[in-house]
């Protein structure tokens, strides 16, 4: 388990006015439609380039009711970069076909995963592939639970810096040093690894947007394999 201050504050802090009256969205369901669109959008931002192929697996309530809620359309719409309030969501399947985006939907049993969970296997126009697992947790809010081999926790509420690095001492210091230099404040930070001493990933959710200069400075730090930014959605 990851200890996260935000988890504690989320329990006691109140929603904002526009969480209650709002958001503007395409129906019929904030979790099965608006949240699904945000999951697709977030997956697109993580891939970082236009998608040419999407294999989508649906679990739980998503698997049972996706046709009635338009979850499939919303996910595809998000993958094509449409916002949850974009009324092209309704025609997303046709639009994807027009754009020659190859896609498939299937159901999957992920055991005790959140009932509204999807796995998106995306291929970008450069041939880059990534597999993302995420859940729509209510009110249009989402959590990305997995990026490729890494278990993560990413909400899309903040810009995020993702660094894949060798699991060795001192790297966190280097990266936070870069952020300090560019006066970027860290809201949440998590470090994940597969095995001790192998590849590890850190995700830093920040208050400020992450510029190319920041990314370049992170990439040249020794031990860093790659660093990229995911904008807030």
């Amino acid at each position: 388990m990851f200890f996260r201050l935000g988890d504690i504050f989320e329990e006691v802090s109140m929603k904002g006015l526009f969480d209650i009256v709002g958001p503007v969205m395409i129906g019929p369901s904030s979790s099965h439609t608006a949240g699904a669109a945000r999951l697709g959008l977030m997956a697109l931002k993580i891939l970082g380039e236009p998608v040419v192929k999407a294999e989508i697996l649906l679990h739980g309530s998503f698997a049972k009711t996706y046709r009635g809620h338009g979850t499939d359309k919303a996910l595809l719409a998000g993958i094509m970069g449409f916002e949850p309030e974009d009324d092209r969501i309704r025609n997303a399947i046709d639009i994807a076909k027009e754009r020659k985006l190859e896609f498939s939907f299937d159901t999957v049993d992920l055991m005790d995963a959140h009932p509204n969970t999807a796995i998106l296997k995306l291929t970008g126009e450069s041939g880059k592939c990534t597999t993302i697992e995420g859940s729509s947790i209510g009110g249009g809010n989402i959590v990305i639970n997995r990026i490729d081999a890494f278990e993560v926790h990413l909400t899309g509420q903040y810009p995020a810096l993702v660094v894949v690095q060798k699991d060795k001492p001192g790297l966190i210091n280097k990266i936070t040093g870069v952020l300090a230099l560019y006066e970027i404040n860290v809201a949440y930070m998590r470090v994940f690894r597969q095995k001790r001493g192998q590849e590890a990933m850190m995700i830093l959710e920040t208050d400020e947007d992450l510029t190319d200069d920041v990314l370049k400075a992170c990439r040249v730090a020794s031990g860093v394999i790659t660093a990229f930014a995911i904008p807030a959605i």
């Binding site: 209650i20 009256v21 958001p23 503007v24 969205m25 395409i26 129906g27 369901s29 009110g139």
Partner: peptide, 16 residues
């Protein structure tokens, strides 16, 4: 009904 046909609405407080 607009919500049910995938039209644009304001969740208030929810879509339902």
């Amino acid at each position: 009904e607009v919500n049910a046909v995938m039209g644009r609405i304001v969740a208030c407080p929810t879509a339902g």
